[in-house]
């Protein structure tokens, strides 16, 4: 048997022993305080998350303003649509005049 093959075989045995030793590890036992500590941390984190923040008063205000702003935007867009549909000719003429105001380019 070559040296490499012998070493490989030995290493495989060592790996098997490691696996067996790993499985035979003694179970870790934790005391009753351990679970209580977790619950204490969970409750503390939860209280911090739910606690009043500095800007807690602003939250409902932001939502109310956002709703009002959205409503105003819809009303404005609607009124523009109605206006342009009723007076499309003057509006078109106005824009044509604005865009077509330049002097014609001299032809060479």
């Amino acid at each position: 048997m070559s040296l490499h093959a012998r070493h490989k075989k030995s290493l495989e045995k060592v790996e098997q022993v490691f696996a067996q030793a790993h499985r035979l590890r003694v179970d870790i036992v934790v005391g009753p305080d351990w679970a209580q500590d977790i619950m204490r941390e969970v409750r503390r984190g939860d209280a911090e998350q739910r606690g009043p923040s500095m800007l807690a008063w602003a939250e409902p205000l932001v939502w109310r303003v956002a709703g009002g702003a959205a409503l105003a935007a819809v009303l404005f867009a609607g009124s523009v649509l109605v206006y342009t549909s009723q007076r499309s000719a003057p509006v078109t003429a106005f824009w044509m005049e604005e865009l077509d105001a330049g002097a014609p380019l001299p032809e060479e």
């Binding site: 290493l11 045995k13 060592v14 022993v17 490691f18 030793a21 035979l24």
Partner: peptide, 24 residues
């Protein structure tokens, strides 16, 4: 000793779980 072990029997005699875990 573990790496130089020639046979399984020899190897079984040598294993010491604490040392094995430490080396691991």
């Amino acid at each position: 000793r573990a790496l130089a072990a020639e046979s399984d029997e020899q190897f079984r005699e040598q294993r010491d779980w604490d040392d094995a875990l430490e080396v691991l």
